[in-house]
Design a protein around this nucleic acid. Structure first.
Lengths: 109, 109
DNA sequence: ATTCTTCATCGTAATATTGCAATATAACTT
DNA sequence: AAGTTATATTGCAATATTACGATGAAGAAT
């Protein structure tokens, strides 16, 4: 085996897992944080910011894009990346929900 | 190659990546959601709830525990698992921060 | 037109993850 | 003590991820 048994879980659970998996790598965290820090679209730059080769970063960007966490627009020669607020809002809502439910818990551990 | 270059990223970035990575699997999402749903510590049960073999679930539980997302207390014969609120709070705070920064953005894409 | 810049893709090696059968451990039951 | 129950560990096969050199594609600059 080795492949995740996605068929056994709900679409929503798989969706959230995809989102978190995309964030589950320090390079992708660093990319997200850089995009947020510069506070605008970035064309290029990312390769210079991180200690990874260009193909590796391109691959990480693709994964973030596939997960829907960032958007990429072609702008002449280069590509302009930025955070997709909708997905961030979705993750935030997830944790607000989770957090709310935990607060009501009778703490037994 | 193949190993993540953790040394090149900050401790905080690696820490957040570990947290998200732990959540980046539908079985572990399902485990977390079950723990939240039952709203108390659970001794056993989880194996019956999920369509995975006992060793597989044990492994997922260990990963969640290593990431600090759940706690496990020995209770006689069985082990009592529950969500660690501190970590959930930490993730929530992370996204609230991120979300706040994104709202101030001049949307260019 | 040729070269440069920017980014993606391909191929591939190294490593990690997923899942489970088999087995081990440890406490509880009789 | 022997059996039962609950969970962990080991070992392994299948698959996925990470990283990068080489190469490709497409617009920009000369």
């Amino acid at each position: 085996m080795g492949a995740t048994k996605t068929a056994h879980f709900s679409a929503r659970q798989n969706q959230m897992a995809i989102l978190f998996k995309a964030l589950g790598h320090p390079a992708r965290i660093a990319i997200m944080e850089y995009l947020i820090k510069v506070n605008t679209c970035i064309c290029g730059d990312i390769v210079n910011e991180l200690p990874l080769a260009q193909p590796t970063i391109s691959q990480h960007l693709r994964e973030l894009k596939n997960a829907g966490l960032i958007k990429g627009n072609v702008k002449g020669n280069s590509i302009c990346y930025c955070v997709d607020e909708k997905m961030i809002a979705r993750v935030l809502a997830y944790f607000e929900n989770v957090s709310g439910k935990i607060l009501k818990k009778n703490n037994c551990c």
